[in-house]
Design a protein around this nucleic acid. Structure first.
Length: 269
DNA sequence: GTTGTAGGTA
């Protein structure tokens, strides 16, 4: 087949590069092992931010090999880079356009190439960056039951790794056993944890100063009316009422903001 | 939009 005619892969795939890394930096580093044809650091198409990896194409595959063996796991720009041989060809714009359908990161990329799945699956999340930090001894006492393997649902790269059939969907946990209500379940999407929202008269009072400040900030007209200005102290009842109003206003404002979210960086120029 | 990634929207 024509496979033999295909030149060896002279491109290296470098990942975990620092955001500060610039193509010239990489070129300087990798160029020591041979002439570098091209250095490319993919950016997020929307945010234009570096995605943390780069491609470096050498003129000679031997140089690429040399660079790989010499620079792999080396610290560049404060990050330990990992180098692999690039697989496949660079993505064509045609394929890139397909990403418009989804978010920049959540977009699923289904490549027809086998290497994609295979290779990436191998890497998986085996990385031990999930170091267990003692957050609380109490948590450690949780009853450990046999972990079901399927419970460890790993988010696929494409974001859609779950191909569960409707039957499986019916096999949901007992509805009455809603031990953990999902966030946002409550119509009032309060960002504060509910436990703290519990009546805390003391803290509430103390935080009144802050609350006032916030209320002032949230006040649409910006009028600063001091409740204690006229020697009129809000009683618990009034405080509660005010709090309620504030809460309501906060919600309203929140919604308003949500709606009128600019969402655009509005380039300064 | 603040994550850790297989690519330039020729």
């Amino acid at each position: 087949m024509a496979r033999y005619l295909r030149p060896p892969n002279t491109s290296l795939f470098i990942r975990n590069i620092s955001d500060e890394s610039r193509p010239e930096d990489l070129r300087r580093e990798f160029g020591r092992y041979g002439p570098v044809v091209d250095v490319y650091i993919p950016l997020d198409f929307y945010s234009r931010r570096p995605r943390g990896f780069a491609y470096i194409q050498f003129e000679d595959v031997r140089d690429a090999e040399d660079a790989l063996h010499n620079l792999d796991r080396k610290w560049v720009c404060g990050r330990q880079i990992e180098i692999q041989f690039a697989q496949g060809d660079r993505k064509t714009p045609n394929q890139m356009k397909g990403k418009e359908g989804g978010s920049s990161r959540s977009s699923s990329r289904h490549d027809d190439r086998d290497y994609d799945r295979d290779s990436r699956r191998r890497h998986s999340r085996s990385r031990s960056y999930q170091r267990r930090r003692s957050r609380s001894p109490s948590y450690d006492r949780r009853p450990r039951r046999s972990e079901s393997p399927r419970d460890s649902r790993g988010r696929m790269y494409g974001g859609r790794g779950r191909s569960r059939s409707p039957e499986n969907d019916r096999h949901r946990p007992h509805p009455r056993d809603h031990r953990r209500p999902p966030p946002g379940h409550s119509p009032h999407s309060q960002s504060r944890s509910p436990s703290h929202s519990r009546s805390r008269p003391r803290a509430q009072r103390e935080s009144r100063g802050k609350s006032r400040s916030r209320s002032k900030s949230l006040s649409p007209r910006g009028g600063d009316f001091h409740p204690a200005s006229g020697g009129y102290e809000p009683q618990d009842d009034a405080s509660s009422r005010m709090h309620s109003r504030s809460h309501s206003r906060s919600l309203s404002l929140s919604r308003s903001r949500s709606r009128s979210w600019t969402g655009r960086k509005s380039g300064g120029h």
